[in-house]
Simulated assay, not measured.
Amino acid sequence: MKFEFPTLKTIIQIILISLILAVVAYFAFPLFALEQVPAQRLFTYGILAGALLGMLLISTRIYPASSTRVESIFVGNLAFKASPNALRKLFEEYGDVHAVRLMTDRATRRPRGFGFVEMKRKDAKNAIRALDGTEFYGRELKVNVANERKSDD
């Protein structure tokens, strides 16, 4: 698990949540309470509840879908002796690799000379820019975004 310091925006959100809950507790709770609770105590409870809620928001941070979306990269003109591990090491220089698939012929089970690498979208773009046209096992790689598979319909 990686620790991240909260951003200024997150800290401001926590403070706003705390203040809103404090004000709501200060004004609304006395209307519904059967017993009298001092207003300062209600305000303090609201601040504490807001701080706890804010910390919960930080610990369960939700990242935008665009930053976590996995992109499939087509890698062509691969040498037949290239292994999935070697290809993974090559692409790991540009980010986390989720999967590597080298395509083989169904009948002969021999390599077909191309494969796919899955990475986060941002890392994939950097890898494509850097690796397209580079030499790998004596062959010049063709690296680009993989096209969607066409349906049989």
Rank of each mutant, 00 (worst) to 15 (best):
Q13M: 09
N85A: 13
L31K: 14
R101Q: 10
F3N: 10
E93Y: 07
F136P: 04
V100K: 00
G115K: 05
V97I: 12
V97C: 02
L78P: 01
F116D: 07
T10Q: 13
A25P: 08
F116V: 08
S83T: 15
A130I: 06
D132M: 05
P6H: 10
F27H: 13
R106E: 15
R139H: 14
G54L: 02
D132L: 00
H98L: 02
F74Q: 02
D123F: 04
F27D: 11
N147Y: 08
N77V: 07
T108L: 05
E92W: 08
L16W: 01
L48S: 05
F32C: 08
A49V: 07
A51Q: 01
S151F: 12
L19R: 03
A33D: 11
F43A: 06
V145G: 00
E4L: 12
S151Q: 14
V37M: 11
T10D: 13
D96L: 01
P64N: 10
R110Q: 13
K2M: 08
A33Q: 03
I14F: 02
V37S: 08
V117Q: 05
F91L: 13
P30L: 04
L31Q: 14
V145H: 12
A146H: 00
E71N: 08
Y63H: 11
R41Q: 15
L52K: 00
P30M: 01
D152P: 10
S83G: 06
K81Q: 04
T7R: 10
D132W: 03
I20P: 01
V70W: 07
R109G: 05
R106M: 13
P38M: 01
K122V: 11
A28H: 04
Y94P: 00
A79M: 00
I11Q: 09
M1P: 06
R88Q: 14
T134K: 13
F116N: 07
A124L: 05
F3L: 13
D152R: 15
R61Y: 12
L131V: 06
L8S: 09
F29Y: 15
I11S: 09
K89W: 11
G133R: 00
A39T: 09
A33T: 02
K125A: 06
V37T: 15
T108W: 07
T44Q: 07
R139G: 02
S67R: 11
D105T: 06
G76H: 10
V117Y: 06
N147P: 04
M1Y: 06
S83K: 08
A33H: 05
R61P: 06
G133E: 02
A22P: 05
K9S: 13
L90I: 09
G50N: 04
A86T: 06
Q36P: 00
G50C: 00
K81L: 02
F80P: 04
M103P: 03
L52I: 14
R101F: 08
R149W: 12
T7I: 03
P111R: 05
A49N: 01
P30T: 00
E4N: 11
A28Q: 12
F74L: 05
S59I: 15
I73Q: 07
K125V: 13
E93I: 04
N126R: 15
A107P: 01
G76A: 05
E4Q: 13
I58Y: 01
F136T: 09
K120N: 15
G76C: 08
E35K: 09
K125D: 10
E140T: 14
S83L: 09
Q13D: 08
L131P: 06
